[in-house]
Design a protein around this nucleic acid. Structure first.
Lengths: 240, 240
DNA sequence: GTTCGTGACGAACGTTGTTCGCTACGAACA
DNA sequence: TGTTCGTAGCGAACAACGTTCGTCACGAAC
């Protein structure tokens, strides 16, 4: 313990580290990992820090800011990629997969991410890196900017899906089996395609589905870029 | 899930209409439209119905079920499309746009949709219809099944984004202007691409961005379908 | 006229986020 | 050394939340 100021209190209390935003966020993320987002309440957090809820408000303005700060902490765990035009697709996959993994390790944080577009230091860093990779891939500036949103969104939503069955104490196959039963037992007259494709709907693990989504979207992006390069006349999107 | 609601409570009270699941959901959606998801609490709902919170539990098992039922009510507002292979892309756009519009009219309901994959009668109906359109477009069964998720997700996430600034009492351009200022005033050394593309990041209204996302993804899907038809063997993943 | 199932509901319990003052400490100052 | 003072810390309280329990009132069946 190398804290410069130790509160030598007269109050009968074992020496505890002084509160700080860092300590609060570390503790919050630990509760999040162990018990999910619902468990991260101001009171629970205060109890874990051996204090009262009011003490937290010195460092954090409220629940919403706490959650956003937690989200940015998670974004900090993502290792960035130095854009290389020869490997941009692979790099993009790595970057986004890392984002997904970091979120999946903190079940519930993805829900915060969907409602709050990244505004923190590290979240924006990831967005900037993603833009770099898209530009390295020859995607036009406008497409890259729009695609940045969508790709982040796919990662976030994938993490939410993981959190859904984690919160219900199930693993992936268990969850898929349950879903398959639901789809297959639907009235075929009203849901002809869902029942027919009940097997395909739950096929593949999260990784496969995630890569399918990213890959398909990138295929579309690349096709647009090639079309834009071929004839610059037939680009209909810019309307002013 | 096909047990119709029995009009068991024939007791007609003089002053106020009898409670029913329909009446509860209609009232809940009205509060949702007028004041957002946060305002839809059991107590607020009960007050609006001139009763106490306990009365609601006769018809609705709890808050979570209420929200899911509200979501399915919103899904009910979507007009389905009869799949026509000649117009499938246009039809798909219409279907998904309608879903988006219905959600945007009920700010906050999209948050429910991301955390709860559609399990209600009408939500599944929309999913089934979406599958039909993809199959009509010649997408393979497996791709259609996976794409169904992604496309719904894009619609849902777009609605969430709309709800974000609606909740902050802003319109779209106001929100974009604010974002542009944020991006442009970032330190260019740390965020070179975000600052450089600050204009492109906020370009276009929600409709344009939404159509870009759907169109790009469909382009990728169609390309995959063509590749699958061309090479009868397995689909190569990394076709540059 | 009595019984009975059930919709309705008052009251309460245990949570939650947040605010308001008071306390006591360390540092600055006389 | 003695005094003041800003402020981190914290106890207590407030309003609002979801949910449950026991009970009441009523229409219908007997």
């Amino acid at each position: 313990m190398d804290s410069p100021v130790r509160p030598r209190s007269t109050r009968a209390r074992p020496a505890k580290p002084p509160l700080s935003e860092d300590l609060i966020l570390d503790t919050a993320l630990r509760i999040l990992r162990e018990e999910g987002l619902e468990a991260v309440t101001m009171r629970r957090l205060a109890t874990e820090l051996d204090t009262g809820p009011a003490s937290l408000y010195v460092y954090i303005s409220g629940r919403q800011e706490l959650r956003e700060a937690m989200l940015d902490r998670v974004a900090r765990m993502v290792d960035l990629e130095e854009a290389d035009p020869a490997r941009w697709r692979e790099q993009l996959h790595r970057l986004v997969k890392q984002t997904l993994t970091a979120m999946e390790a903190h079940p519930g944080i993805a829900e915060v991410a969907v409602a709050n577009p990244p505004s923190g230091e590290h979240g924006l860093q990831v967005a900037d890196n993603l833009l770099a990779l898209l530009l390295a891939g020859g995607i036009t500036a406008q497409d890259a900017a729009w695609a940045c949103d969508i790709i982040m969104l796919i990662a976030t939503a994938s993490a939410v899906e993981t959190a859904v069955y984690q919160q219900r104490d199930m693993n992936e196959t268990e969850f898929h089996d349950r879903l398959h039963t639901v789809f297959a037992s639907l009235p075929a007259a009203r849901y002809p395609h869902l029942t027919a494709l009940s097997a395909e709907m739950i096929n593949g693990d999260g990784d496969q589905r995630f890569h399918f989504a990213i890959d398909t979207f990138l295929d579309g992006l690349v096709a647009r870029a090639e079309r834009a390069r071929a004839g610059s006349a037939n680009v209909p999107r810019d309307a002013g």
